[in-house]
Simulated assay, not measured.
Amino acid sequence: MVSRPAKPITVALIDDYDVVLVGLAHMFDAYRDRVVVAEIDANEPLSDPIDVVMYDSFAQPESDHHEIRQLVANPRARQTVVYTWNFHPELIAYARGHGVRGYLSKTLPARELVAALEAVHAGEEVISEPPRRTQLSMALDWPGRREGITDRESEILALITQGKNNAEVAALTYLSPNTIKSYNRAIYRKIGVSSRTQAVVWGMSNGFTPDHHRIDHWLGGP
């Protein structure tokens, strides 16, 4: 049983999408005595050390581990955790091997997420159980949610909007090409389009274009 720290831990939320960051930050609203969200918009410089950097892998190419390596190496980040639905063993092994102290499931309720962050802050390694597809916390948000797009569909549509083809999306998400095709059909039906080009245009107009500058800035880029 990890004892609670004497003062709230500071957490920086790292993601390219505003709606994802705001939704994640809202999960901590009832736990302000234990967690202080010190940074959402990383376009603003922050020199103070952060207890835990929480990297939300929404629509990130998870086979490209550059972001994880850089976050772990960043002197402002005392500990780094990954927040994701993708629990492929290769991804977990890579993250652990490069110093990530937490690999946390997006299906965790807020109270368990806060406890996991406190445990990481205390020096423990926390790896969530591989998630079953259950309803996420109502505090979370993602692009397209109001149109009935699920969290997984949203991440796939974000990759499509970035110009990834089916084979690339399958490789990045560790899903089969046929599974991606099934997701595509469901997405097209929900947003009322009939082609990939139309889906990209819809995505660009509805919050699926990432602000890569946000993560680049936090990692020390321009």
Rank of each mutant, 00 (worst) to 15 (best):
S63F: 12
P210I: 10
P61S: 10
P143C: 06
R146I: 09
E112T: 08
D211Y: 02
A12H: 02
I127H: 08
H121M: 05
S154Q: 00
V35M: 00
N206F: 10
G102D: 00
G221P: 07
S128R: 05
A170F: 11
P61I: 08
D48F: 08
V22E: 15
P45G: 10
D16E: 15
Q70V: 07
Y94T: 06
K181T: 12
G192T: 05
G123N: 02
N165Y: 05
R189S: 13
D141E: 14
R76P: 01
T179H: 14
V169L: 09
A115Y: 00
L159W: 13
P210L: 06
I92G: 00
V100W: 01
L71Q: 00
H213Q: 13
Q79G: 05
S194M: 14
R69F: 02
V2C: 09
D33I: 02
A139E: 15
V36C: 07
S205V: 04
D29F: 09
I92K: 09
L113D: 01
N178P: 07
H26F: 11
A25L: 04
G220E: 07
M1T: 10
Y83K: 01
I180S: 02
A6S: 13
F87C: 05
K190F: 04
H217Q: 13
I14D: 05
V36Q: 06
P45M: 12
R78K: 11
V72S: 00
V22R: 15
G207M: 11
D18W: 10
R111S: 12
L91Y: 08
S195A: 08
N86T: 03
D211G: 09
T197C: 11
E153T: 04
V201Y: 07
I160H: 08
E125I: 13
E155F: 10
V82H: 03
L140F: 07
A6G: 12
V193P: 11
E90W: 03
R196E: 14
